[in-house]
């Protein structure tokens, strides 16, 4: 068992480095701490929400198994890194390759056979996939949640009384990179533009010679890899468990609605906003109702601005 540099419980508290500190400074550091945690958890919501949105845009369907993509990514990492003992980088690559292959399988097993049906059969198909995935993992890995090593070998740093967990910093950085990458990919590459064209109008895209089925397959791959990354990143904090995906997916789904249904920027902003709102409200108002604030925010948005922050007034395209 690795040594923990922090003092054990029941040891005298370290002397306050700044006993003269004003209460207002203390309140500021506490709020910054809460906002930092909120942003980090919000980033995870954002990553999963991004996966949601990409599939919504490509297929017009909400993928209810999106959270389980994160769970699978977490378990892949448990398998390659914790169980087989591969180096972290190799295990990470292997986990993402597995997720990519899984994205293809998911497309051809869950979406493709129903692609000409209305959205409801597909939606139920993804719901079924979610139940199937959770129970398959239960059968293979057993019910105990698993711990996962942090990406960096340090626990975190203390900046002026605010503790920055290294894993949260990694989550923020990776989310930023992925968001930037996704933007560049969709706006600056031919493949990205083909994907956009497919999501806007499949018939038109087909007429223009874009292989629509392939584009949708790529979307599923990308979405599965994004979910997998979210799972690998959040595993060290929330642990890898069968239910981890469902918890995240519910919030991520709320984030897509708050941000604007089917909007990429909206998913990111919605996720971050949700994370910060629930953290601040839990700190300032009441902890047991933490989950309620997220859905209260969702409720308010549906009431006041149903199209979300970045949503267009008319979301269906003619």
């Amino acid at each position: 068992m690795p040594r923990d540099p922090l003092p054990s419980f029941g040891t005298p508290r370290a002397p306050d480095p700044d006993p003269e500190r004003k209460p207002s400074v203390e309140a500021l550091t506490n709020n910054l701490q809460v906002i930092f945690q909120g942003l980090a958890l919000g980033s995870i919501y954002a990553l999963v929400a991004l996966g949601f949105v990409l599939i919504i845009r490509a297929t017009n369907v909400v993928n209810f198994a999106q959270g389980d993509f994160a769970m699978l990514g977490g378990y892949a990492m448990v398998l390659f890194f914790s169980a087989l003992g591969w180096p972290y980088a190799l295990a990470l690559v292997a986990a993402l390759v597995v997720m990519a292959i899984f994205g293809v399988l998911f497309n051809y097993g869950v979406y493709y056979p129903l692609r000409h049906r209305s959205f409801l059969p597909v939606l139920i198909s993804t719901l079924g996939a979610s139940i199937f995935l959770q129970n398959t993992v239960l059968a293979v890995f057993g019910p105990q949640p698993r711990p996962l090593e942090k990406t960096l070998p340090v626990d975190g740093i203390n900046v002026g009384g605010v503790f920055l967990d290294s894993q949260y910093l990694v989550i923020l950085a990776v989310t930023l990179l992925l968001v930037l990458g996704t933007y560049l990919f969709f706006e600056k590459t031919l493949l990205g533009k083909k994907l956009q064209a497919t999501s806007q109008d499949k018939d038109m895209a087909r007429l223009l010679g874009i292989p629509v089925a392939l584009m949708i397959s790529i979307t599923f791959i990308y979405s599965a890899v994004l979910g997998g990354i979210a799972g690998v990143l959040v595993g060290p904090i929330l642990f890898v468990s069968i239910g981890m995906g469902s918890i995240i997916a519910l919030k991520a789904f709320a984030a897509t609605i708050i941000g604007g249904f089917g909007d990429v920027t909206g998913a990111i902003v919605g996720g971050l906003l949700l994370g910060v709102i629930e953290s601040l409200a839990a700190y300032h108002i009441s902890v047991p109702y933490k989950d309620a604030y997220a859905f209260l925010a969702l409720f308010l948005f549906l009431l006041v601005r149903p199209q979300g922050i970045f949503g267009e007034k008319v979301s269906e395209k003619a």
Partner: peptide, 20 residues
């Protein structure tokens, strides 16, 4: 006396309340 709901992903508000 501080309650929390099961599967809370973040205990920062609880910890800060204990500290305070």
């Amino acid at each position: 006396v501080q309650g929390y709901t099961n599967n809370s992903q973040d205990f920062t508000p609880v910890v800060l309340a204990v500290k305070k």
